[in-house]
């Protein structure tokens, strides 16, 4: 029974990170109908920049508590990723705004490869360990354990997601974003600057992605130029599972996917009589993706796509 609880807790941590990244996919899709496959690489850059900043500080002899160092790293990584997101939209997607849907999709995949190669040039091909500045003190929950760090990750994810929902539902910016997603032409007629709104969407999604990247790196204690690919694909799955274009759906889909994956990893050995081990956990995410695409393509919370008059 404690395996079950343990895997639920692990899944919750993993799932809230998926959810944070999935929001980046779903926001961009909601506003311009584009799957930004380069979003995973923004997540990777967030992790890499933070590690670099922390390493520079510690090698310069700065002694600060671990969480403060991480915070400083984030304060560099978040604006860096926001800028990256802004440039991605401006350079790669905006010129293709009125092109057939396939063109920006291929561009997105190409861009993702370009960014991976850029990361190799900057950080090399090796796994980069997260500096050992955070202690992993555990808390006991009915026989299962969770680290304080993981509790922090979940709390931060939930606060960020709640904050985003408030921005989208309650502010002028959010109203303009929703108007743009429902009818860009008419939103433009009402004085909404559609280009600014699209930029803002990329920038906000990238900021969340940067934070998620750091969470991934601290949770697995390492970062890698290729890390964005798999985590991005899973977050995309989460967005599809929840109903792409739907913010609440991305959150629900992310958490659900994290839990499904963790439970799958925990029990796959027993289920297959030891034939498959827990390193096959990735297959669950993609089984979920295939099942959703076959049985409920609009996702759990997805409605029929709004018509774009």
């Amino acid at each position: 029974m404690d395996i079950f609880l343990q895997q639920i807790l692990n899944g919750l941590v993993l799932g809230s990170i998926y959810a944070l990244i999935a929001l980046g996919y779903t926001m961009v899709y909601g506003i311009m109908g584009l799957i930004n496959f380069a979003h995973g690489e923004v997540v990777m850059f967030g992790a890499m920049v933070t590690i670099t900043v922390i390493s520079l500080l510690t090698s310069a002899g700065v002694t600060l508590p671990g969480p403060v160092l991480v915070l400083i790293g984030l304060l560099v990584a978040i604006p860096a990723c926001m800028l990256l997101g802004f440039v991605i939209e401006r350079v790669a997607y905006r010129p293709l705004r009125n092109a057939p849907k396939l063109a920006p999709l291929i561009t997105a995949i190409g861009l993702s490869i370009v960014l991976q190669q850029a990361a190799i040039l900057i950080w090399g091909r090796n796994y980069i360990p997260f500096p050992p500045i955070l202690d992993h003190e555990t808390i006991d929950v009915f026989g299962a354990t969770i680290t304080q760090l993981q509790v922090g990750i979940v709390v931060l994810c939930i606060s960020l997601m709640a904050g985003l929902l408030v921005v989208v539902e309650k502010t002028k910016l959010g109203r303009a974003m929703r108007a743009t997603s429902q009818n860009p032409a008419v939103a433009g007629l009402m004085g909404v600057n559609v280009n600014t709104i699209i930029s803002a969407t990329f920038v906000i999604g990238s900021a969340l992605g940067a934070i998620a990247g750091v969470m991934v790196a601290t949770n697995y204690d390492q970062a890698h130029y290729y890390m964005g690919f798999m985590i991005g694909l899973k977050a995309f799955t989460a967005a599809v599972l929840g109903g792409i274009g739907n913010l609440g759906g991305a959150v629900a889909g992310g958490i659900l996917l994290g839990i499904i994956e963790s439970l799958g990893a925990g029990y796959i050995g027993d289920l297959t009589g030891g034939f498959l081990g827990s390193h096959y956990q990735d297959i669950f995410a993609f089984m979920v993706l295939i099942a959703v695409l076959i049985f409920r393509p609009s996702g759990l919370l997805g409605e029929k796509m709004a018509d774009r008059a």
């Binding site: 929703r178 429902q182 009818n183 008419v186 009402m190 004085g191 008059a309």
Partner: peptide, 20 residues
């Protein structure tokens, strides 16, 4: 051509964008 998923009030509020 309204913003169908938004409330009536929000639709009008979007119209204020150009004057704010």
């Amino acid at each position: 051509r309204l913003f169908h998923e938004m409330t009536a009030l929000e639709n009008v509020m979007v119209g204020r964008h150009i004057r704010s």
